Amino acid sequence: MIVFVRFNSSHGFPVEVDSDTSIFQLKEVVAKRQGVPADQLRVIFAGKELRNDWTVQNCDLDQQSIVHIVQRPWRKGQEMNATGGDDPRNAAGGCEREPQSLTRVDLSSSVLPGDSVGLAVILHTDSRKDSPPAGSPAGRSIYNSFYVYCKGPCQRVQPGKLRVQCSTCRQATLTLTQGPSCWDDVLIPNRMSGECQSPHCPGTSAEFFFKCGAHPTSDKETSVALHLIATNSRNITCITCTDVRSPVLVFQCNSRHVICLDCFHLYCVTRLNDRQFVHDPQLGYSLPCVAGCPNSLIKELHHFRILGEEQYNRYQQYGAEECVLQMGGVLCPRPGCGAGLLPEPDQRKVTCEGGNGLGCGFAFCRECKEAYHEGECSAVFEASGTTTQAYRVDERAAEQARWEAASKETIKKTTKPCPRCHVPVEKNGGCMHMKCPQPQCRLEWCWNCGCEWNRVCMGDHWFDV
Rank of each mutant, 00 (worst) to 15 (best):
F7A: 03
F7H: 05
V15W: 00
V15A: 02
V17H: 00
D18Q: 11
E28S: 08
V29Q: 10
V30K: 00
V30F: 04
A38H: 06
D39K: 05
Q40V: 05
V43Q: 01
G47L: 05
N58K: 13
L61T: 02
V67R: 00
I69R: 01
Q71P: 05
P73K: 06
R75V: 12
R75D: 13
G77T: 11
Q78R: 11
M80Q: 12
A82H: 07
A82D: 09
G85N: 12
R89F: 13
A91V: 12
G93F: 12
C95M: 14
E96S: 11
R97V: 12
R97L: 12
E98T: 09
P99D: 15
D106Q: 09
D106K: 09
S108G: 11
V111P: 14
G114A: 13
V117W: 06
G118P: 14
L123T: 15
H124F: 04
S127W: 08
R128D: 15
R128S: 11
K129G: 11
D130Y: 08
P132N: 11
P132S: 13
P133E: 12
G135P: 12
P137V: 13
Y143D: 05
N144M: 04
F146S: 01
V148G: 01
G152S: 14
R170D: 05
A172T: 12
L176Q: 03
G179M: 07
D185E: 06
S193L: 11
H200R: 10
S205E: 11
K211Q: 15
C212P: 00
P216Q: 09
D219Y: 07
K220R: 10
V224E: 14
I229A: 03
A230S: 13
N232L: 00
R234Y: 07
T242H: 15
R245H: 08
Q252T: 12
S255F: 09
F264T: 01
L266E: 04
T270D: 03
R271V: 05
F277S: 00
F277E: 01
V278T: 09
Y285F: 09
S286Y: 01
P288C: 05
P294H: 09
I306V: 08
E310P: 07
Y312S: 04
G319D: 10
V324I: 13
Q326V: 06
P335M: 08
A339E: 10
P343N: 06
E353Y: 07
N356F: 12
G357R: 12
G357Q: 15
G357Y: 12
L358A: 15
G359Q: 09
F362N: 06
C365M: 02
K369A: 06
A371S: 10
H373T: 02
G375P: 04
E376W: 07
S384C: 10
T386G: 10
T387Q: 11
A390N: 14
A390L: 13
E399T: 12
R402H: 06
E404T: 10
S407K: 12
S407H: 12
E409Q: 08
T414E: 14
T415I: 11
K416N: 06
V423P: 00
P424M: 08
M434V: 06
C436E: 01
C441T: 02
C449Q: 01
E452P: 15
W453E: 02
N454A: 06
V456E: 15
F463A: 00
